[in-house]
Design a protein around this nucleic acid. Structure first.
Length: 504
RNA sequence: GACUCGUUAGCUCAGCCGGUAGAGCAUCUCCCUUUUAAGGAGGUGGUCGAUGGUUCGAAUCCAUCACGGGUCACCA
C-alpha cells in the first residue's frame, strides 16, 4: 500500500466522509472565474470603501490551502494558485453552521478549495475574500511539509519536484524564467530568418562532439542507436540541402559524470548560418544577450553568486594565446615549447600528462590559469586547430581554427566557428580521430562517411554555434547548480530492496 | 571514480564523552467570530538509512552497503 502512514490514512477517511456528505472530493467541473492575482488587483479599491467591503461583488477563486487558522466560529485560509495567494475568510454565519462544522473536520492544509464570495479588508488590513460558499475541489492525501521551514532536503526537492514547487514559490519562478529564456531565444532567431528544425535524437553514429554516448537498441532494425551527443552534423546536412539559416533547441545526452554544471541530458541551441562568419556569430550573440536581459528585466550589471557580471560594455575579444599570457600570466616565451609548458604546469603544483601535444597543453594551461578568471563576457578567439576538429582552418595561420568560445562567470557558455566544409580535409580529420580511437581515446569522433559525402555535394561557407541553455539559465536566474534549472534532474533510483511493492 | 559531510516522528532539527529517544510545526480531542508561522489546554505518533561487528548494553563506537550534498577527477 502506498498511502500507509497514519496521516495519509486519516486524510483518506476525510475524503470518504466528504463523499458520504455528497461532496465529491475529486470534482472536475468546477468553474473558477478569478485568479488570486486578479482578485487582489481588481479589488484594491475596497480598502478605501467606507465599511471596507463590497458585498455587491461575487467571485469564485480556487487554490491550494497553504495556511489554515480556525478561530472557533470563524476561520482563515490562505490559498495559493499559480500567480499568487489570497486569504479566504469563512465563518459559521457565512457558509452555514452544519457545513462549517464539517469543513472544520474535513478540510485541511494541502487541499484545493473553491471559495465564492465578496472582497473585504480585515482588521489587520489584508484584502481577503469573504466566502459564502466553500467547496473542496481536490482532497489532498499526502500532508505537506512544515509551513515555516518548508521542504529543505535537496534530495526530496529534486526527486519530488512537484512538492518542491508547491512549497517553494521561487522554484516556480526560476522555471518560468527558463521558459521565457527559451521562448525569447526562439523568437530572436525566427525574427532573423532562422528556421527551427528537428533532427534525430537517435543516431547510428554519435558525432558532433567529444563525449561518451548512451547506447540503445532498435529491435525492428536490430541495430544499436546512440542518443545524440550533438545535432551538429545533421544541421549542417540541412545547410547542404539548402536551408541557409537553421536552429534547433533540444536535448543532448552525454554519458559522463554529473556535477553542478553537468547533467546527462541537457539542452542546447545550435544554429548554423550560411554566408556568415564567426564574427557575425559573436555579434549575434551579443545582440541576443541584450535582448534577453531586456526581456527578463535584468540589470546590465548582473549579480551572480558573489560576482557582478558587466554586460554594459561590448564583450571583450582576446585570442587564445593572448589570453594565456595576459589573463593567465603564462610567460609568452614558453608557449611554443612543449617541455617548457610541462615544466611550468608541474612547477605550479599541478599534474600533467607529459604525452600531450602542444595544442592540448595550451588547453590545459587555459583550463588551469584562464577560464575561472573570465568573469565579464569574453570571447576567446583563434583556437588551436587540433582541439577544433570540425572548425575551419585559418587561411593566414594553419595552426589556428576560425573559432571562438564565450565565457561568462568563469564558465563556457557558447562555442562557435566557421565550419570546415572541405570534404577531403574533413575525411582526413575523421581518419585521425579513428587513429586516436584505436589508440584508446574512447571519446574520439567516429568516421561519418555519409556526412563527408554530404560535404562532397558542397556545404556553403557557414558559421555555426552551440549554446548551453541550462548554463545560460543558471546565469540569468543566479542558480549555482544545474539541478536547480532542470525540472527533473537525473537521480539514482532508490535501492530496490528498500522499496515496497505490496498491493493497495 | 576519489575524498568529505550528511541520513533520527509527515516536515525542520536537537540528542552522538555508549544505559533502547526529544523539541517546534503538522496531526488528534477540547476552548476561541478578524487571524498573519494566530493563541490556550491535553494526547497520538519513531525497528534513529540498511546489514554486520565490538559491548552486559549501540541512534551514539567500528566495518560494509545504499542514497544525497560538497570538493576534486572525468567532462567543454
Amino acid at each position: 500500500m502506498i498511502f500507509k502512514n497514519q496521516y495519509e490514512q486519516q486524510r483518506i477517511e476525510k475524503g470518504k466522509a466528504l463523499e458520504a456528505l455528497g461532496k465529491n472530493p475529486y470534482q472536475h467541473n468546477i468553474v473558477k472565474d478569478t485568479s488570486t492575482k486578479e482578485f487582489t488587483e481588481c479589488y484594491a479599491y475596497v480598502a478605501n470603501e467606507n465599511n471596507q467591503r463590497d458585498e455587491n461583488k461575487k467571485n469564485t477563486v480556487v487554490g491550494r490551502i497553504k495556511f489554515l487558522r480556525h478561530m472557533g466560529k470563524a476561520a482563515f485560509a490562505k490559498i495559493e494558485d499559480e500567480h499568487g495567494a489570497l486569504q479566504v475568510y469563512f465563518s459559521k454565519e457565512s457558509i452555514g453552521e452544519e457545513w462549517f462544522e464539517e469543513v472544520k473536520k474535513l478540510v485541511e492544509v494541502g487541499d484545493i478549495i473553491l471559495a465564492t464570495g465578496f472582497p473585504f479588508v480585515t482588521k489587520t488590513g489584508e484584502l481577503s475574500l469573504h466566502a459564502k460558499e466553500l467547496e473542496v475541489a481536490t482532497k489532498s492525501i499526502v500532508p505537506l511539509p512544515e509551513k515555516f521551514h518548508g521542504l529543505q532536503d535537496k534530495e526530496q526537492r529534486y526527486r519530488k519536484r512537484y512538492l518542491d514547487m508547491i512549497m517553494n514559490p521561487e522554484v516556480r519562478k526560476t522555471f518560468k524564467t527558463r521558459s521565457k529564456i527559451v521562448s525569447t531565444i526562439r523568437h530572436f532567431f525566427e525574427e532573423r530568418g532562422f528556421l527551427e528544425v528537428e533532427t534525430p535524437m537517435m543516431h547510428p553514429i554519435a558525432g558532433g562532439a567529444n563525449a561518451r554516448p548512451f547506447v540503445t537498441h532498435h529491435n525492428a532494425l536490430d541495430v544499436d542507436r546512440y542518443l545524440r551527443i550533438a545535432p551538429e552534423l545533421y544541421l549542417k546536412r540541412l545547410v547542404v540541402g539548402g536551408f541557409e539559416a537553421v536552429f534547433e533547441i533540444n536535448r543532448n545526452f552525454r554519458n559522463e559524470g554529473m556535477d553542478q554544471t553537468h547533467n546527462p541530458e541537457f539542452t542546447m541551441i545550435e544554429f548554423y548560418w550560411a554566408y556568415h562568419n564567426y564574427h557575425d556569430l559573436m555579434k549575434l550573440t551579443e545582440e541576443m544577450f541584450d535582448v534577453l536581459l531586456k526581456k527578463l528585466k535584468l540589470p546590465k550589471k548582473l549579480p551572480f553568486g558573489d560576482m557582478e557580471i558587466d554586460f554594459s560594455k561590448q564583450f571583450q575579444k582576446i585570442s587564445f594565446k593572448d589570453a594565456l599570457a595576459l589573463i593567465g600570466k603564462v610567460p609568452y616565451e614558453i608557449l611554443e615549447s612543449r617541455d617548457a609548458i610541462i615544466k611550468y604546469i608541474i612547477d605550479s603544483g599541478n599534474e600533467i600528462n607529459v604525452k600531450l601535444s602542444l595544442g592540448k597543453l595550451w588547453e590545459e594551461l587555459f583550463d588551469l590559469f584562464v577560464e575561472e578568471k573570465l568573469i565579464d563576457p569574453t570571447f576567446i578567439i583563434d583556437y588551436p586547430i587540433e582541439i577544433s576538429p570540425l572548425a575551419r582552418r585559418s587561411e593566414t595561420n594553419p595552426d589556428i581554427a576560425e573559432r571562438f568560445e564565450l565565457f561568462i562567470a568563469g564558465r563556457e557558455i557558447a562555442n562557435g566557428f566557421n565550419e570546415l566544409n572541405d570534404p577531403i580535409d574533413q575525411y582526413n580529420r575523421f581518419a585521425k580521430q579513428i587513429e586516436a580511437k584505436d589508440a584508446g581515446d574512447d571519446e574520439a569522433h567516429e568516421m561519418d562517411e555519409d556526412y563527408v559525402q554530404a560535404l562532397g555535394y558542397g556545404l556553403p561557407p557557414t558559421a555555426g554555434q552551440g549554446l548551453g541553455i541550462d548554463r545560460l539559465t543558471m546565469l540569468l536566474t543566479n542558480e549555482e547548480s544545474i539541478k536547480d534549472v532542470i525540472l527533473f534532474p537525473a537521480m539514482k533510483p532508490i535501492n530496490e530492496n528498500q522499496q515496497e511493492t505490496e498491493e493497495y
